[in-house]
Amino acid sequence: MASPILHIKDSYYFEVPAFMWRHNYESRDQVPEFLREAHPHATPEEFNKALDGKILIPQLPGVSLKNLYQSDSPLAISKFMILELVAAAIIAFIFIRLAGMIRTGERPKGKFWNFFEAILLFMRDEVARPAIGKHDADKFLPVLWTLFFFVLGCNLLGMVPWAGSPTASFSVTLALAAVTLGTGMICGVVKFGPVGYLKNQIPHMELPFVLALFLKPMIWVIEVFGLFIKHGVLGVRLLANMVAGHIVLLSIMGIAFSVEGAVSPYWGISAPISVFGATAISMLELFVAFLQAYVFVFLSSLFIGAAIHHH
């Protein structure tokens, strides 16, 4: 069996139940080239069997894959790239429509739109303004709002059958953490100047001059390390939560789907239990999807707030 990690990692195909997507290769020539080259001895039937339920993502001409999960080309289109676009499109659709409803100062009508407006206001009044300060917070709202809904969208896609969580990949979470770091750095430099921003990393301390001469450079180094670590952890936390949730789900569903289980007489008992368990964990995952999006944006606000204010 392949590692379960492959189920939550980025790949170059979408996986659906086998009966929904059959491959009917009759000769090896119809099989994509990278697979043919990788498996010189496999028969068309073996390819069909292995690829049933796998919707290969069409690649740009000239882009070659190493296997279903890896490519040497930077232009290869992966599942998470498409899912990110889907999340972005859904978010753009929802909020451009919501903007059309409330731009005149009217209130949105209906639960659906009020739900999103409530989140926007919560992010503004309970997250951004307390963390950054009322005066500056509103400038950062577009970044924070986009971060929240993009993270939330990517998290929730993990709960959609046959999709997946882009936020279960470091490539995505660290890129988003870099957005926070970059925002803080740019705005800090704009506010204090490059030197001022760097000096601002040292907390204010009343030290005798001689002591300060030795301590302050060391503290500065620690603080600068800390700055990168904090933002790195922002990405790690999100990834860990998503990966952990999906692995737990996989393990529990694995009870129902394992080969040994399926042929054992107790499968009739273990399978329903695992379905129950997976349903319950899915509920938890839904909550975690929202919670981690909130935590990500909350911490981002704190970091941005720290970057643009004196310690």
Partner: peptide
């Protein structure tokens, strides 16, 4: 198209 009009609204 969204945050600007929403904030204004």
């Amino acid at each position: 198209f969204a945050w600007g009009p929403i904030v204004a609204g």
